[in-house]
């Protein structure tokens, strides 16, 4: 059970949050220009990293804000948290 430091509310228990998968997969600006393969890449293909992953979380039962987290998926250690739109910390 993680202890997550919401950038808007502070430390809260994991059960207030929802995970939103890999971060920094930007929705294509011009989807119609993409091939089926490229669209599938956006839609379904994931790095699914074992190690340090950049991912999205939502304080669903709190402020409802989305934010980013850097977490090591092999240990569940949370390394950093930053707001949407902020530059990701270097590893």
């Amino acid at each position: 059970m993680f202890l997550i430091n919401c950038p808007y509310c502070g430390e809260r228990d994991q059960q207030e949050f929802k995970a939103g998968g890999e971060a920094h997969i930007e929705r294509p600006k011009q989807p119609t220009e993409l091939s089926d393969d490229e669209w599938a890449e956006y839609l379904f293909m994931r790095k699914n990293i074992k190690g340090v992953q950049f991912e999205r979380w939502n304080h669903a039962h709190g402020c409802r804000k989305w934010f980013n987290m850097v977490r090591d998926t092999s240990s569940d250690e949370i390394k950093a948290i930053y707001k949407m739109g902020e530059k990701p910390p270097s590893q």
Binding site: M1, Q14, Q15, G21, E22, N48, R71, T73, D76
Partner: peptide, 12 residues
């Protein structure tokens, strides 16, 4: 609902 390779889940 999150990716993890730890073979541990949350109590909830």
């Amino acid at each position: 609902d999150y990716v993890s390779y730890t073979q541990k889940g949350s109590h909830q």
